[in-house]
Deep mutational scan, measured.
Amino acid sequence: MGSVRTNRYSIVSSEEDGMKLATMAVANGFGNGKSKVHTRQQCRSRFVKKDGHCNVQFINVGEKGQRYLADIFTTCVDIRWRWMLVIFCLAFVLSWLFFGCVFWLIALLHGDLDTDYKDDDDKSKVSKACVSEVNSFTAAFLFSIETQTTIGYGFRCVTDECPIAVFMVVFQSIVGCIIDAFIIGAVMAKMAKPKKRNETLVFSHNAVIAMRDGKLCLMWRVGNLRKSHLVEAHVRAQLLKSRITSEGEYIPLDQIDINVGFDSGIDRIFLVSPITIVHEIDEDSPLYDLSKQDIDNADFEIVVILEGMVEATAMTTQCRSSYLANEILWGHRYEPVLFEEKHYYKVDYSRFHKTYEVPNTPLCSARDLAEKKYILSNANSFCYENEVALTSKEEEEDSENGVPESTSTDSPPGIDLHNQASVPLEPRPLRRESEIGSRR
C-alpha cells in the first residue's frame, strides 16, 4: 500500500517518465508532432483561472445545437444578457408577425380586404367582416399587437362572423401568456443567479507553507467582502497533476483530494472575517514527500473551492481559484488583518494578500521532518523571529508614515537576534492585533 500511495502522490514527473511517455506515443502511432509532453521546463496551462473560470474549450460535440435547444431554459439562463435581450425582442416580434399574417390571411380569404370602410357607412358590411377595420397587412399586424398586449384601442375587434378568427384570438392570448411567463422566468432566474456573489468572495493571491502546531501546513486565505453571511460555508481543495499509471496509461489531469478537515468538520467555516484555511501535510497528503526545492521545480495546480448558500436567496454559490506551484510561498505567513478595537473588531483588507517571511522554516519535506531528519529550532526562537518579522513590518510602515526611528523597538546594537533566540524570552503579545485562523 505504501508503494502504491507514493506512486499515486508523486508530484514532480521525472525525466524517465517523460521519455517513457514519448516512447509510448511513438510506439502507439501518436508521434505526429502534435502531442505535447509536459516536462519541468514546460509548465501546463492553468486549468482553473484565478477568477474561477475553467480554462476549457469543448470541440467536436455531436448534436450540440439539439442538446442546447432541448434544455432551452438553461440555455437562456446561461447566455449573455445581450443575447437574452435579442431573444426577448424576437420572441414578441415574431409572435406578433405570425398572428398578424394569420389574421391577414383570414381577412384575405373572407374577402374583407376588398371592402373600403372609410367611404361605406353600411354597418351590415362591417358585421360581415371577420375582424372589423382590418383591410391590410398593417392593420392585421396592429390588431395582433393589440390582442397579445391587451391594449385594446377599440377600432379593431373580432366579430362572430368567422369562428376561426375567434379561435385565433383565444389562441394568441394563451401563447402570449406562455411567452411572458417564459421570458420573465428566465430573466428573473438569470438575475437571481448567485454567480455575481463570487465577486465579493476573495482568495489570497498566494498560498503559503509554514509551520503550525509543530507541523508543516499548506495555507491559503479566504474572505467575504459583504456583511451578509454565506450560510453553510465549506471549503474543498484538489491537486491536479499528470501521472502515468503502473500499466503505462497517461492521465493528463489526475485529481487528488486535499484534506482540509472534512473528517473532523473544520472544513465548515464561519466566514465573517478572513480565515486562513489549513491543510496539514501528513502522510496522507500529496505534498508529504515534497521539499522546498521540489515545490520550486514541480508542475501541478491546486484548485480551491468555497461553497455556501447566499443568505438573501438561499441559492448555492461556488467560488473557485487555483494556485500553481510557483504561487506557493515556502516559509511565509499571512499578515494579520483582524484588529481588536474598543467595542468592535476591524478588518483591514489592505493586508489581505500580504505575507511575511518566517525565518528558520524547515526546507525539507514533511516526511523528513516526521522522521527527525531535520532538527527544528527552539520553539522560543521560532516565536521570537516570528515577532521580529512582524515588528520589522510595523517599523517599515512607521518610517513610511514619517514616525521617528527613535520610537521604534530596535534591538541594541551589536546583538545578533538569531543568537539571542536560544535565550528564554518573556511572551510578547501583539500590541493591538490578533489573527483569527482556522485551528486544527
Rank of each mutant, 00 (worst) to 15 (best):
I184Y: 08
M191T: 06
W96G: 07
K227F: 10
E405Y: 03
S10P: 12
D254G: 07
N198Q: 14
Q293T: 12
E394H: 10
V202C: 11
S132D: 09
P413Q: 11
T355I: 02
L218H: 01
E307R: 06
D348T: 02
G154M: 02
E371D: 04
F141H: 01
Y356L: 15
E357S: 06
K373E: 07
V169D: 01
D112A: 01
E387T: 00
C89M: 14
I305H: 07
E340L: 06
L417W: 06
I269Q: 11
T391Y: 11
G111W: 02
T147K: 02
M309T: 09
D114L: 11
P424R: 09
W330T: 00
F167W: 03
P412K: 07
Y334P: 03
R236K: 10
P413D: 12
P286G: 01
F155H: 06
V131I: 11
E161W: 06
R197S: 11
D257M: 09
I302C: 01
L90A: 04
I183L: 13
C364D: 02
L430D: 13
I79S: 08
R44M: 10
L338P: 02
T74S: 12
V77N: 07
V175H: 04
N32H: 08
R432V: 15
D257P: 11
L94H: 01
S291E: 03
W104Q: 03
Y349N: 05
T355D: 03
T200K: 14
Q42K: 07
F30G: 13
T355M: 04
Y153Q: 11
C101L: 15
K34H: 11
F92K: 09
Y117P: 01
A165Y: 01
R367P: 00
S124L: 15
A70G: 10
S434Q: 10
E400L: 09
D114H: 09
Q293F: 08
T138V: 04
S365V: 00
K20L: 03
P429L: 12
L376D: 15
T138C: 05
S127Y: 08
T200D: 06
N55E: 14
N7C: 06
I79M: 05
D160W: 01
I184K: 08
S127M: 15
E327M: 01
S392C: 08
V77G: 14
G261Q: 06
V170S: 01
C43W: 06
G18E: 05
P252W: 14
D299R: 05
D267H: 06
Y117Q: 01
S322C: 03
R156W: 02
V337A: 11
T6I: 08
H279N: 01
S228L: 08
L425K: 07
F73I: 08
K36Y: 04
E146A: 04
L216A: 01
W220N: 09
R351C: 15
L369S: 03
V4R: 08
P286S: 00
G152W: 02
N401V: 13
V347C: 12
Q420M: 11
C217T: 07
A186Q: 08
V337L: 11
G402L: 09
F171V: 09
G31K: 09
H38S: 15
F270M: 07
S136L: 00
N55W: 00
R80S: 04
G154R: 07
I183D: 02
L105W: 06
V347R: 00
T138E: 04
G214M: 08
Y344W: 11
Q57T: 09
S291L: 01
S411W: 05
L390I: 13
I305Q: 12
C364V: 11
W220Q: 03
L142E: 03
R82D: 03
D257N: 10
F92Y: 04
C157E: 05
K354E: 11
R367Q: 03
P413E: 14
E426W: 03
L97T: 03
F92H: 06
S291Y: 00
I436C: 13
Y288E: 00
S285Y: 01
G331E: 00
Y384F: 12
G185L: 12
S95E: 02
D289K: 08
A91R: 04
I281R: 00
L97D: 00
S350K: 15
N360D: 11
I79P: 13
A210N: 11
E16L: 04
Q420I: 13
R432S: 15
D213K: 15
P359F: 03
K118P: 00
V304L: 12
S321C: 14
W96L: 15
Q293L: 12
F73P: 15
I164Q: 14
F352L: 06
G2Y: 06
P424E: 14
S434N: 05
L306H: 02
L21E: 13
I59N: 15
K36G: 10
Q41C: 06
R40C: 04
K354F: 08
L290T: 07
L253I: 08
S136E: 01
M24C: 08
L290H: 08
D17A: 07
I145M: 11
P427Y: 08
V12S: 15
D263T: 06
I79Q: 05
R431Y: 08
I281P: 00
E341R: 05
A379I: 04
M191D: 05
D299T: 07
I277M: 11
F203W: 08
R40S: 14
Y153W: 07
F88Y: 08
M219T: 03
E63A: 13
A233I: 09
E395K: 03
H205M: 07
G18W: 03
I251L: 12
G100M: 00
